[in-house]
Design a protein around this nucleic acid. Structure first.
Length: 435
RNA sequence: GGGGGGGUUCCAGAGCGGUCAAAUGGGGCAGACUGUAAAUCUGUUGGCGUAGCCUUCGCAGGUUCGAAUCCUGCCCCCCCCA
């Protein structure tokens, strides 16, 4: 199965420029995907692009990851445009290195094969490009008429009609497509890169690039976009109440990462497993069938979570996450909790918010409201905690607690050291007693 | 520069002198049901020692027994015209 066919059945193909498939059949092709280096870690919103590059490499072609050091500073008018903070060069390089390490788990950068991946940063070729040179060499090749015909620009300029949300577009954002288009031209000329891929909102920007290549270099370049991911319930993919799901274990623990995929709805799991794993079509169809026959077993979620956790973190981290889940979501009673030794318990609750309490405070029979609100800040107000307890939503050491007058002492400790606080079904906090 | 509209609790958006901690919807949180799902239903959604008290309706003053609601000044946002 070739790359394009692969994308089609996986639901990862939105638009494709005519001739792209032929190009891929004809020769070893390079493609690039742009990544904003706004942080020193990727989050799962980046993962579709990463998987695109991975599949591309699998099909025998050469992927290029372009770090948008320059473009990230401008702000893309496609989609929403918040203020961009300018990165200084040091953090830019730092972010780039961190991102590369993460990409290496998915893509081969070793340089050992002719389709080994590369990483480039457009800051390298943009930083020395003067404004004057740019508008003369590049700006000359594209008409404003062409640029304002793009949806991303047009939607910001249309003042007729009834849309009152239009806020206009700054010159900087207007220029964005040209800068991104120049990236493509640069890579076309220097890296023989003839294909750019991006989310469907990038179509306009990508075609500015192919247009530029046609006019400046007389060449033909191609484009592929993937559909933007949405959740079945309409929510935004990859965000939880607590924010982004990051690939960096310091930002999002492997346990939470694993849980994110486990919690995918059935519909989403079917979609995700095609996109975020490289399991074959036959096997995925079997998995989907199994899942539909016995949905409560959640075959899809389990497999999805396994594949992607192992790929992103490691087999080891995956196993830990499974163990932790078994304790937390199995019949986790006070007894099973007590059976764990301190070390296992700590690893299970790694990544769960932890708070320290001194032994003396415990011995003073600290009241539950003081402990959970003032002492540990697990709850922001006593009113909220009272409410939650009234609704039967609080567990201490896996046992429901409704008595707001409760005080704590030695008998409430697991392993003489811990108090496990659970809010609702899934949110845990751990209080550790220190001398 | 001229004219108009507006800033309310997480968001949207009512309220326009007392019965307003402030309608309604969304979102959040929790409970029931479940499969750590979806849907549904229920409760809850400023703080506190919860009878009651305190802090909130852009900011600062004022009128009044009493103001989110009226007046004055200031700040900010949007639209139209030039």
């Amino acid at each position: 199965m070739n790359f394009v066919e692969e994308l089609k059945w996986r639901g990862m193909l939105q638009d494709i420029m005519p001739g792209t498939e032929e190009l891929l059949k004809k020769e070893l092709t390079s493609t690039y995907v742009g990544i904003d280096p706004t942080a020193d870690s990727l989050h799962i919103g980046h993962l579709v692009g990463v998987m695109m590059l991975k599949l591309f490499q699998h099909s025998g072609h050469k992927p290029i990851a372009l770090i948008g050091g320059a473009t990230g500073m401008i702000g893309d008018p496609s989609g929403k445009s918040k203020e961009r903070n300018l990165l200084d060069e040091d953090s830019l390089r730092h972010n780039q290195e961190c991102i590369k390490k993460q990409l290496e788990k998915f893509i081969d950068f070793s340089g050992n094969s002719e389709n080994s991946a590369e990483m480039v940063n457009n800051y390298d070729w943009m930083k020395g490009f003067s404004f004057l040179d740019f508008i003369r060499d590049i700006g000359k090749s594209i008409t404003v008429n062409y640029m304002i015909a793009k949806d991303s620009v047009k939607s910001r300029m249309n003042r007729d009609g009834n849309d009152e949300n239009v806020e206009g577009i700054s010159f900087t954002e207007f220029t964005y497509q040209l800068v991104q288009g120049y990236d493509f031209l640069h890579l076309y000329q220097n890296n023989n890169c003839k294909l750019q891929m991006g989310g469907s909102d990038q179509w306009g920007n990508i075609t500015t690039g192919t247009e530029l290549i046609r006019r400046k270099a007389g060449g033909k370049a191609f484009a592929i976009t993937w559909p933007l991911l949405t959740k079945a319930d309409g929510g935004k993919f990859g965000k939880t109440e607590s924010g982004n799901i990051w690939l960096d274990p310091k930002r999002t623990s492997p346990y939470k990462f694993f849980q994110f995929w486990m919690n995918a709805s059935d519909k989403d799991a079917e979609k995700y497993i095609k996109i975020f794993t490289i399991i074959s079509k036959e096997e995925i169809n079997t998995l989907i069938k199994e899942h539909q026959e016995a949905p409560h077993l959640r075959t899809l979620q389990k497999r999805l979570a396994r594949e992607i956790t192992v790929m992103t973190h490691s087999e080891d981290e995956y196993n830990k996450a499974v163990d932790a889940s078994a304790i937390l979501f199995g019949k986790g009673t006070k007894e099973t909790l007590s059976k764990l030794d301190s070390e296992t318990l700590l690893s299970v609750f790694e990544g769960v918010p932890q708070f320290k309490l001194s032994k003396t405070e415990l011995l003073a029979e600290i009241p539950i409201l003081d402990l959970l609100v003032e002492k540990t800040k697990i709850f922001p107000s006593k009113g909220e905690l009272r409410r939650l307890m009234k609704d039967n939503g609080l567990s201490i050491n896996q046992e429901k607690e409704q008595n707001t007058e409760k005080t704590f002492n030695n008998n409430d400790l697991i392993n003489d050291k811990f108090i496990l606080v659970r809010k609702g079904k899934k949110k845990y906090s751990l209080i550790i007693i220190v001398e």
